[in-house]
Design a protein around this nucleic acid. Structure first.
Lengths: 255, 255
DNA sequence: CGTATCGTTGATACCTGTCAATCTTGGTGG
DNA sequence: CCACCAAGATTGACAGGTATCAACGATACG
């Protein structure tokens, strides 16, 4: 248990690549993230203070002193947001994908860690300056409000899983959500692919456990159960094919 | 289990008292709720469309068809927000106290129930019209954003409890939070009272269980444990005196 | 004073956590 | 290219915490 905390300390002080040549015009999330609320002209207010960065899987996006200084938009990859108890138990409280926001505006303390779950590319802003842009552009603030309301909805759905679902239901629900998310990003404006949904898990078993309030062993056992019963197929441990989506959905939400 | 769902149906179609003579000037939450972002003049935009209502303990604030039509501010009492699984299991996902907001702006569906946990007094707005006021008053929308961000923070803290804490820790943490909240509202600008903190639980054992992802029996047993060990004293079942606040805090967050 | 509702307590079962061993995978260096 | 190693994942045996089922007690209400 103390290992985990130590590990965290060691991977702190991130030294990510800084990329200067990214332009909003060719940003893949320009029309999906909150910056889509701004027209190309107003968007300069953001691009002027923006810094593009890469983080490798496992790197912390900030350490405790930095936390209040960062606001960012995920461009590619996945970020996990998690909290830790004094004895090392941890709980993932948010998974962020392209177009999602990281960093708590309008508050200094949140005691939340953010770590690259995969290699990620993010678009960073000095927080105080970003808040200034928000104040001058109510349409941007409105977009942030809508995003925050959606985050709150997901957090509450997540609470139902944590509080009231069995391990089997949690895992089926989790895989279903991951599967659907990957289907969405896969065929942008195409009819659903005729093949069975296949996707790569952005999280290790350990992290899935920390997501769902379980242990790694319970996660593993339930994966096996799903595999043996033919609902899913493990292609390489992280890559999953959903052989029977209906069965998976049935297991996620019973009755 | 199906009883619960039926009970819900029966108490639907609320017929609350409508009170017309409330004025913003003497509203107890005028300077704490999001409307404090508006000066007395702008506040008319709200008071013009506002309706004051009472709900008795157990009444639903809306039924499924109504959900998208309501936005409200709690004036007194407590409201519980909860979600239900198809088989009747339920999870409370939010507790709202005076100055808190109820109702999801900018979205039609949320599948969340809201019920008066105690007798409550709330200040209601037709949602579409409230959204109009938000659009015309960015400072109000900013206040709503700040409140939503705080709600998101609490939801995430709550997730840590649900996913990673033992029954004993959950209950100690819950009592601690309730105790602190009541202390805050008790002495507005006074030094902490010399007496031991005492407060009335706004929830039944059943509801506490639905808050913490436990059963009513486990809640009851842990209350007993705290009582026997002298950490709390039950004055009348709903009224609790915290005899040893430090011990309670220790049990809530170990190590 | 009976009755319904809520809360408490007890006995037992089961799910999930814990501890430990084994297997798999990917990376490294000889 | 293969052996070796570390990290991650799986599997098994077992224990423990919480749920379940059931009975009883307390409290409020008519």
């Amino acid at each position: 248990m103390p290992d985990k905390r130590q590990q965290l300390k060691m991977s702190a002080s991130p030294q990510p690549d800084v990329i200067l040549d990214r332009r909003c015009e060719n940003c893949p999330v320009r029309h999906h993230a909150i910056c889509s609320a701004l027209d190309n002209h107003s968007c300069h207010a953001l691009s002027d203070i923006m810094v593009h960065r890469h983080f490798a899987r496992g790197q912390q996006l900030w350490n405790e002193e930095d936390e209040a200084d960062v606001f960012a938009i995920v461009v590619s990859g996945a970020v996990k947001l998690f909290k830790m108890l004094a004895d090392g138990r941890q709980q993932i409280v948010g998974l962020l994908f392209p177009a999602d926001c990281v960093g708590r505006t309008f508050s200094e303390t949140q005691q939340t860690f953010a770590e690259a779950a995969t290699n990620v590319e993010i678009c960073c802003f000095p927080r105080k300056q970003f808040e200034g842009v928000l104040r001058r552009h109510p349409e941007l603030e409105h977009a942030l409000l809508e995003k925050t309301l959606n985050d709150l909805d997901s957090a509450r759905d997540w609470m139902v899983s944590l509080g009231r679902k069995s391990a089997g239901e949690k895992i089926a629900g989790f895989l279903l959500k991951m599967s659907r998310k990957s289907e969405l990003t896969k065929c942008p404006h195409d009819r659903p692919s005729p093949n069975l949904p296949t996707f790569v898990l952005p999280l290790s078993r350990d992290e899935i456990a920390d997501c769902l309030g379980l242990t790694i062993e319970t996660v593993s056992r339930n994966f096996t159960k799903l595999r043996v019963s033919g609902v899913i197929r493990l292609i390489d441990g992280q890559t999953i094919e959903v052989c029977d989506p209906d069965a998976l959905a049935g297991l996620a939400e019973p009755a």
